[in-house]
Design a binder for these strands. Sequence first.
DNA 1: TCAAAAGTGTTATCCTTACACCCATGT
DNA 2: ACATGGGTGTAAGGATAACACTTTTGA
Lengths: 314, 314
Amino acid sequence: MTEPEPIASAPMVGLAAVILAATLDEPRVLTVPVAGQGAGRAEGLPAGPLEPAHPTLERGLRAWVERQTGQSLGYVEQLYTFGDRNRRPGGEDGGRHALSVAYLALVREARPAADSAWQSWYRYFPYEDWRAGRPPSLDALAARLEAWAAAAASPEEGRRRLDRIGLTFGAAGSGWNEERVLERYELLFEAGLVPEAGAPDALAGQAMAFDHRRMLATALGRLRGKIKYRPVVFELMPPAFTLGQLQRVVEALSGVLLHKQNFRRLVAQQGLVEETEAVTAETGGRPARLMRFRREVLLERPAPGLRLPSGRAG
Amino acid sequence: MTEPEPIASAPMVGLAAVILAATLDEPRVLTVPVAGQGAGRAEGLPAGPLEPAHPTLERGLRAWVERQTGQSLGYVEQLYTFGDRNRRPGGEDGGRHALSVAYLALVREARPAADSAWQSWYRYFPYEDWRAGRPPSLDALAARLEAWAAAAASPEEGRRRLDRIGLTFGAAGSGWNEERVLERYELLFEAGLVPEAGAPDALAGQAMAFDHRRMLATALGRLRGKIKYRPVVFELMPPAFTLGQLQRVVEALSGVLLHKQNFRRLVAQQGLVEETEAVTAETGGRPARLMRFRREVLLERPAPGLRLPSGRAG
DNA sequence: TCAAAAGTGTTATCCTTACACCCATGT
DNA sequence: ACATGGGTGTAAGGATAACACTTTTGA
C-alpha cells in the first residue's frame, strides 16, 4: 500500500547561492558570467550540480562557490527549492526534472576573484530602491501593469489582477511593503514585463540567466523580513562600526530611509550593540563612537532584530 | 571557467507532505504506515519519489498524497529540502544522495482513507502542549539535558550546551517560545533523547520513520510563526465558525492558552472576520454568533494575522 | 563661520494587557 | 439557581513616532 521511502527517478539537482554583502552604501550580490543562452554572455549566480562527493547539500554549495569565486562563506541558510518553472528542457532529456536548491549567504568582505563580480542588487530590481524617494520607473511600470490588467480575458480576472497590483506595489491600504520582492517580480513576470519573459527593454531591471533573478528576489524578500526579528545584519558588518554605518546598511537592505534618532534608540535599548572605547574620524562631521554586536542579546530576547522605525528623515 | 548550469549527477529525490488539520480541540497530522526499519511497522508521512510524469514538484506531491491517503489538498507551501542527515544509505547506492522536498499542507476536513490515520501532533511532541500548564515530562527532559551538558568534552562546550538549552526550552530571559519546535527537537536529537537517536523510552514523544519527525517539527514551527502575520488559520476552519472555536484552534496550534476578551477584540478590530446572520446552539452556555473569514482583509492590511495576546486565562 | 554628522531629551499617541462585568442558554 | 460559554467596556502601562535641540569635527 505505502511506498517504502521517498526514493527517486533520476532528476538533475543543482545548487545555487545568493551571496550578499554591503560595502559602503550599496547592497551587493556576487555574480558570475554564464555562457549565453542564445545571445552572448549573461550574468548568473554561482551554481553547480550536486555531486556524490559532496557530504551534504550545504558543503557542496560551499565547494562550488569557492571554486567559482574564491569566496568562502560564513552565514548560510537554505532559501527554496526551485523546480517548477523554466526547468524542464522539454524533449532533450526525456522529461527529466531539473531542480535547484537555492541558498542565501551573507558575507563581510567583498574580495572579488576570478571572473566573478559584485553588483548592486538594485541593478536587477531598480524599483525596489526607495532611498531617494519613489523610483521614477515605477510610473511607467504601473501604467504597463494596468494595461495588462485591462487586457484580461474576463472582468473577474481583470479585477483579480488589479487587486494583486495594489497589494504588491502599494496603493492598497498600506502603501509600499518592502518585503514583497518576490511577489512583485512574479507579477511583472506574468505580465510579461521582465526581460526573461521577453520584454523588449529593461524597464524592470537587468536580466539574469535561467531563473536566477527569481532566486535573488526570494533572497531579498527573506532578508528584508529577517532583519526584523533576527540580528542577521551584523553578518554583513565589520567587527566594529558606527551607528551611522549600521543605519545606512539597514537602509540599503530594506530600500527605505529611516528616522535617525529613533533608529539609534531602538538599537541601543534593544541591547543589540555595545560601545567600544574607540572612535573614528570619518567623513565630515563629529567623530563617532565605534560599536560592536552584543552576542549576549541572543540569549536575552526572544526575537532580537531591527523593527524598522518607519519614517523617512535625516 | 563557469559551469553552464546547475545540472546534476543522479540523486534520488523524494516528496513528503505534512498535512495538518484541526478537528475539535485537537491539532492533527495525517500519517501512513511504513514498512518497518528493523522491527515491525512505523508511522510516517505520506511520501513518494518525484517521477518524470509529474509536471511540477507540487503536482507530484498532490498526486502521491491522493494515492496514499485519498485526501485532496488545498493550501500547500514548500517547507524545506532535507538531505543532510539520515539520508545517505552508505555503500548500498554507491554514495548517491537522497533528498526529500517537504511540503506543509492545511486541510479542512479529516476524512481518513485507506491505511492513513489522523493523529494528534502532540503524540510526537508531548512537551509542546502547554494548554494544561507546563507539561510534566519537561522536568525529566530538563534533567537529562542538563546531564548531557555536564557530560560535554570541554567546559566551553558545556556552557554552549547550557545556553542552547536555556534558549530553546525557556528559562533564559523570556521563557517558553512556542515557535522553536525544530530547535528543541534538534537539541533532543543531539542529546540522544529521541527514539530515532536510540533513546530507550519515548519520553520525548512517539518516533516516526526516517527523518519524518524532523519534518513535522519544521512544519509546526513554521505554522506557529505564520499564524501571527498571515491568516492561515482559516484554512483549517469550516466556512462558518464561532469565535470560541477559532480561539480553541489557535490555542491547539500554538500550544498555549489565550486571554479570551483580548483575543476577541484582536480578531474583530483587525477585520479578520465578519458576522453572519446565523447563530449556533452548541455545547452549554449562550448561543454564539457564527462568523466567517473576511477575505478583503488581505487587501487592507500588510500582515493580517493573530498576534497571540499572551496570557493564559479563561 | 558654516555644513555635516553625532548624539540627547521630551511629548503625544496608539496598542497591548489586564481587570471587571453583563448576557443568554441548558440542566 | 447556577454553571457555562458568549459578549462588552474601560483603565493602566509600555512602545512608537515625531519633534526640537546640543555637540564636535573639517573645510
